[in-house]
Amino acid sequence: MVDDHEKPLSLVMFSGTDDKLTAAAVLAVGAAVMGRPVNLFLQYYALDAFRAGRVNADHALSPEATVSQAPLIRAHKGQHWSELLKQAKDVGEVNIQACALSMDMFGIGREDLDPIVDGIEGVAAFMASASDGQVVFI
């Protein structure tokens, strides 16, 4: 019988803006430190942000960011989301998979992905990994 705190946290990463990617990375870190396996499923715009050489590029902020909030977000000295994910991988079980459909849609090949991405999978495999834990869409 699996304790609640060991159930996986599975994040469907849809958005590709830096604020949402950071929010997702923080959740991943939180779950990882608590001993919960974490699965990330990269789709659409999030997948684009994980391309080799593009991870640290400016991915803009979501339209929700106001004129006064945007500079605060940019100036904040927190870690980059890619760095947070690396730390999460260090401390716990974090599996980052690219969505095969999105790869196909955007013409992205395996070699185009940043090494932090562990592999490519389809949605059924992602759901299997999500098992009895939670699925969050960001």
């Binding site: 969505c99 095969a100 459909l101 999978e121 389809g122 949605v123 059924a124 495999a125 759901m127």
Partner: peptide, 9 residues
């Protein structure tokens, strides 16, 4: 590519 993980799963 997705079939490789989807079908077995």
């Amino acid at each position: 590519e997705g079939s490789k993980t989807d079908i077995p799963a």
